[in-house]
Design a protein around this nucleic acid. Sequence first.
DNA 1: AGACAAATTGACGTTGACGTCAAGGTAACG
DNA 2: CGTTACCTTGACGTCAACGTCAATTTGTCT
Lengths: 129, 129
Amino acid sequence: MDDVLTIGEMCETYEVTARTLRFYEQKELIWPIRRGARRLYDRKARARLQLILRGKRFGFSLEDIRQLLNMYERDGSNQAQLERTYELAVDRLAQMEAQRAELDLAIAELKQEIAEGAAMIAAFKAAAE
Amino acid sequence: MDDVLTIGEMCETYEVTARTLRFYEQKELIWPIRRGARRLYDRKARARLQLILRGKRFGFSLEDIRQLLNMYERDGSNQAQLERTYELAVDRLAQMEAQRAELDLAIAELKQEIAEGAAMIAAFKAAAE
DNA sequence: AGACAAATTGACGTTGACGTCAAGGTAACG
DNA sequence: CGTTACCTTGACGTCAACGTCAATTTGTCT
């Protein structure tokens, strides 16, 4: 045990499918070691996967995540890129908060419609004819 | 002016594309009048479009919206269907609140990372090598 | 060695809500 | 009557993030 996991073990550990792992690799998000044709995931690969999953929780697209990851793969100490990442995070936060505001609005509207004794239904009837 | 709009006028008024209107028609969400081959949108058609857009704001799928709309097109007074609509709305509300909870969590996490002086960035660096 | 489990690549399919041509029809204006 | 501008149908394309085969190869166990 060289502290590496097979694809099957990865699937169990992180609750993803093998297809997903191969897909991430194809998209250049992760690069497992090869032993023959088989993939072996070392500590680094697992750290990257965790960041991918975390990024997804943050609502980043895989492409965003790839860019962030590869940025720091090449040069983690580059100050400009560091700031770029920071900006990306702040932007993303703003997007998420805007999305939240929209969602809140929609929830409030829907709640009111429901509370008003199915006013929405009345509205649908009106539009129906 | 018979209180009808051409497709182009509809596009400007509701900020949708012609493709979208034809798509909604193909999906049986809306039925404009025909004068020759051309579509003309009367008051009823416009009311339906507004409900479609509203439904989308609520996060309903077009298929959900179609069912709701057509349900009341056929029989607005059917009690069972009324209740079905009500249930759909309540379900949808629950979904939206769950979605908001997730979003809140993600926002909180991201905020913390940012507050911690770009801890996320450090994490990305760690995973990069 | 035989059997069975686990992995591999490649390729096409899925979902939703449209976008984007192509090729032509027609209404209205001057 | 000619020229635009607007409209029509049909059909294929797009995007994201994988799912779902199929055919084959490799690894492990007995």
